[in-house]
Simulated scan of single mutants.
Amino acid sequence: MTEHLTSEPGHAVVVMGVAGCGKSTIGSLLAARWGVRFIDADDLHPPSNVAKMTAGIPLDDVDRLPWLRRVGTVLAEETVLERDVVVACSALRRTYRDELRRSAGHELAFVHLDADRDLLIDRIAGRSDYFLPPALLDSQLAVLEPLDTDETGVTIDVAEPPDLVVERTATWRRARSTASPR
């Protein structure tokens, strides 16, 4: 049985965190559970960003801004058509999340997937098809700003199995949409 993201269409959930936290896995599982579209923001990076990261060079804000705007525009397109969507996007800093909100044109719900460095390194090292080398994890951890109290979101430890992470996220979202539909 598919449960709905909310009772009204046109909502977006951004699954955020550093490399290796499981954004794509959890995001796609949430989207399947809710019967909505899943978008991986990594697929929206321009080739120049992918080339930098593949070479082990961290992105700077000049690299990120056009990408974040593109992700926000995709969010806006989905929600203006009254389609719910789950997006996996690092969204590491508050300013990045603010840009996503600005570009989307509405509030977004963030699910911050959190884990300790050792678990993240193990996960990244186990990937053969991922363009981000493990060496860039430390730069992401240095940039990461946890959700502020005025941001709509939840932080969930991903040391637990994916199905439990998904259940905790769905429980949070249900409680949130019952208390405040938008």
Rank of each mutant, 00 (worst) to 15 (best):
H112A: 13
A51Y: 09
M1I: 08
R101C: 06
T155D: 12
R117E: 15
D63V: 09
S139L: 02
I39M: 06
A170S: 15
D114Q: 15
R70Y: 10
M16A: 10
R123Y: 11
G72H: 01
L136R: 02
L30N: 09
D61W: 00
H11R: 14
T178W: 13
L132S: 06
A32K: 15
A159L: 00
V18H: 04
L65S: 13
L59C: 07
T178C: 11
A31P: 05
D84A: 05
W34S: 01
S7P: 04
S90Q: 10
D150N: 09
R101W: 08
V13D: 03
G17P: 00
D116A: 08
R176I: 03
A109E: 14
D43A: 15
R93S: 02
T169A: 15
D157C: 07
D84Y: 02
S128M: 12
A179I: 02
E77S: 13
A109V: 15
G10E: 01
A142K: 11
C21G: 00
R174T: 14
V13R: 01
R173A: 14
V166A: 08
K23G: 01
L92A: 01
Y130C: 00
T95L: 08
R69W: 11
V87T: 04
N49S: 12
F38H: 15
A31K: 06
G35L: 09
L29V: 07
W34K: 11
D157F: 10
R33Y: 05
P133H: 03
P9M: 06
D116V: 03
A41K: 05
V154P: 14
G153T: 02
Q140W: 03
R83G: 07
G20H: 06
R33I: 01
V74A: 00
V86Q: 04
G35E: 11
F110A: 13
T149F: 10
T171C: 11
L92K: 05
F38K: 01
S90K: 02
L132F: 11
W67H: 08
G10M: 04
A91V: 02
R173C: 08
D43T: 12
R117L: 04
P58G: 04
V13T: 06
S28Q: 15
P134D: 05
R83A: 13
L147R: 02
L141W: 02
A41G: 09
M53L: 13
K23R: 05
A51K: 14
L137D: 09
W67V: 05
A104K: 00
L75A: 15
V50W: 06
V14W: 03
P66T: 12
A91H: 07
H11L: 04
G22Q: 07
